[in-house]
Design a protein around this nucleic acid. Structure first.
Lengths: 242, 242
DNA sequence: CGTAGATTTGATAGCAGTCAAACATCGTGG
DNA sequence: CCACGATGTTTGACTGCTATCAAATCTACG
């Protein structure tokens, strides 16, 4: 990932709270920084849950798959997201994680994190917030995949990813945000075939409501996309800053 | 919803921990017991999040819908489940809740619950467990709806609902559990049309792997259903008992 | 340049949706 | 006890959205 400054990547994401209790906590938990290249598996379905990862820079995605290879992308992961299994007692990852770009990851021993949360209600509440928020996002996807047409799903995905990226200050001056995915990834996120995804993307493109090229996405007409998607999603404020 | 004994309904669900700290907590939070008939809206999409509900008896479902009426059922809710928005800062319900049977509900003031969690890390961790577990279930559904065929989805749903109900001791002597839903509900849960749901249900029925009638479900051949669904889902132990 | 991966397009197939209507079930009222 | 209406289930006919197949570009890059 590219942070032009010499700052630790991702640091600007947490301008206020970083350096607060969390910093100490992260140090005490003996997190380890790791840098991964693109297309690396951070976790496979069924892996042990020993570690929890904090994505400091770069993009990845979470997915589940069926034995015959069909794959469903559960969500795209961007800097600031937490990756791991929070339920104490769950021995295995229920999903896999693969990087899309070079990523910087802070790996924490899960046991220590959960123990810390057992001592610190505010940390536990933060983790609860995260889990609850991810459930919300999953359920938004479930609505899309279950009940929206291809066009509608695409519009909803574009809006969702864009809003989330903007929220995290990933937009450049022109309003474009990174979205380093192939059409195959989009297809797997929407439950569509690659070919149909391409045709859908192309059809929407002629409407001039968004741009997607070179791994960057720009929403031009959010209202129009919202109309297409029959979409009225609202982000929840108050995300904990790690 | 019938407990022949004079016990408080649902009490047998928590044979060990009930009467523990949770009981006190529930009392202190000034929860109110409410009984609702079938087909009652416990919450609508967009409702304020003032209350969190604990389902003590009966069944309900959570759903999201699009403006034109299409509806996606996010999950079926059975005794012991918690219903509410955990993210502090979220003002509105992102989904609706409707009862399927007569239900008994313990309604808690959300603010008090969250405040209590902020004081009590073990409570916060329990809530985190619940949120994380619901995310897991949503994502299992997402895989189904996104990548499984109608037959596969149906098999996966049957297995999932059955396992969850058995886990909560809802099975009778014959191994049947309550599943008080219409085919329309199943259709909305699977992202299928009513007609196709009927045909799918009927097709699977001829295989003799399950029975569903009179609002009760019995799995006859779980292995066969698992093969159909390409399914290898595992429940996580350690659910908090409220 | 040559090769691998990604995008695009056209043709065809099929799973699931839609439409329409018969049939079943059940609670209610005459 | 049966008629009636409302809700839910079942079937058949037809449609169509999306998948699949095949192949032609396009792009990145060693």
């Amino acid at each position: 990932m590219s942070n032009s400054s010499s700052d630790e990547p991702g640091a600007r994401l947490v301008p206020v709270a970083y350096g607060h209790a969390r910093r100490r906590l992260v140090d005490e938990l003996r997190g380890k920084r790791v840098v991964l290249g693109p297309r690396q598996m951070l976790a496979r379905e069924g892996d042990d849950t020993l570690n929890i990862h904090l994505l400091r820079g770069g993009w990845a995605f979470r997915f589940k798959s069926l034995e015959d290879g069909r794959r469903q992308i559960l969500g795209f992961v961007m800097p600031g997201d937490l990756l791991g299994v929070l339920e104490p007692g769950a021995p295995m990852f229920p999903y896999g994680i693969e990087t899309l770009t070079e990523t910087e990851i802070l790996t924490l021993p899960r046991q220590r994190l959960l123990e810390a949360a057992a001592q610190d209600a505010s940390l536990a509440l933060d983790l609860m917030w995260i889990a609850a928020n991810e459930r919300r996002q999953s359920e938004e996807s479930l609505l899309s995949v279950g009940r929206r047409s291809a066009d509608e799903r695409m519009a909803a995905l574009i809006l969702h990813v864009y809003a989330r990226a903007v929220e995290r200050d990933l937009a450049d001056a022109s309003g474009a945000v990174p979205f380093p995915v192939s059409q195959q990834h989009i297809a797997d996120a929407l439950g569509l075939s690659l070919v149909h995804t391409n045709k859908t993307l192309r059809r929407l493109l002629t409407l001039g409501v968004y741009e997607l090229s070179g791994g960057r996405l720009r929403v031009i007409d959010a209202a129009a996309l919202g109309d297409i998607a029959l979409h009225r999603e609202m982000a929840v404020p108050g995300r904990p800053l790690f």
